[in-house]
Design a protein around this nucleic acid. Structure first.
Lengths: 196, 196
DNA sequence: GTCTATAAAGTGATAGAC
DNA sequence: GTCTATCACTTTATAGAC
């Protein structure tokens, strides 16, 4: 593993955990086990390094969605099931990611969305087409935006309020893990019932 | 309005918008229109001022929940309706609050929860008792924690992903406001259907 | 490429005059 | 209580030796 890779890896860890402002370049150098000067040698500045991490993190967060939502071979129901299950698995492995993104998107949002062509992706997706067809066929579905907010809210929100849920429910780490994994099966059934 | 009040008000605004680490005491002084030295004169340190804001913000976030969940005169259904409607109105007025709290709770969570006696509040609430009775009566409700995560997720999550929803749906500020206000009626109907 | 030393700027906090 | 001036320290970033 080269010094450059070590720095990026460490930057991801520390930025995800503490956010941009609370992270010191020294924290990253220490986490990476490299000399502080190398950070600027490879990445010029804290901000440039952060922008790389931010873009890649956001991209990874939407990678699953892109893949599932654009698979023409599966129905709307299976899309939701697959999306929820894969998302929960993904966030279990990267628990700091949702809060990091929600938080840092306060500053970086629009440029990043444009760069990833987010609006066009949704409107051109297999998911979008299937959804429109259902509505035309007379299904009482809510607007796509409500639907998206609901699926993502049910899936992601427990990770964002993890400290609160853990405290209220008196859950240790394995308990919490079990709690969110249960939701892989529960959320799709809830979604179906919501729109009967 | 005294200088002390001006500082607190300004601190709330700036901390909510940028978080603890990204906020400079000079930002607060400027927002308050007071001299920088007065901040330390009244509040000793940035951290002490922050702790006050954090506690009050968290308290205000749960004030509505406490009030509604402990009202013995209303049914479970009306509790949910009231809670959702009042919460959405509350956050519309304080749009920076959810992300601020979720973000800063990464550091301050457990002490704050203990201080507010959060676990005991839930377990002693009218809401909790009604929920347990329903389960005993044979209703197929999920565990209370799933239920809480669902209601709060559906209610709060759209505010946390506001930038993304606005971009994807091409919504300006009034559009977004309308979008979340619609949910005051939609969420209770969804919740009911989920647990039929 | 990697290190040490240090410049340059930012930031929290206080002393002391009024 | 409120101000100006400034200290003490942190933090990003770079110069220059190896």
């Amino acid at each position: 593993m080269t010094a450059e890779e070590k720095i990026k890896e460490a930057a991801r860890t520390v930025f995800h955990k503490k956010g941009f402002a609370a992270t010191r370049t020294r924290d990253i150098a220490e986490e990476a086990g490299i000399n502080l000067a190398l950070l600027n040698y490879y990445f010029r500045s804290k901000k440039k390094l952060f922008d790389i991490i931010m873009f890649e993190s956001f991209q990874s967060f939407f990678y699953t969605m892109k893949e599932v939502f654009n698979d023409d071979n599966i129905s709307l129901e299976v899309k939701i099931e697959t999306f929820v299950a894969r998302y929960i698995d993904f966030i279990v492995e990267q628990p700091d990611l949702p809060i990091f993104l929600m938080n840092e998107l306060r500053n970086n949002a629009e440029e990043l969305f444009r760069r990833m062509d987010l609006r066009n992706f949704f409107q051109a997706s297999s998911f979008f087409k299937q959804y429109q067809e259902r509505i035309k066929a007379g299904h009482p579905l809510p607007s796509l935006l409500h639907f998206l907010a609901n699926v993502m809210g049910l899936t992601v929100f427990p990770f964002i309020t993890k400290p609160m849920l853990q405290y209220v429910g008196d859950l240790d780490e394995p308990d919490f893990r079990e709690f969110v994994l249960e939701r892989k099966k529960l959320i799709p059934t809830w979604i179906k019932k919501m729109y009967l």
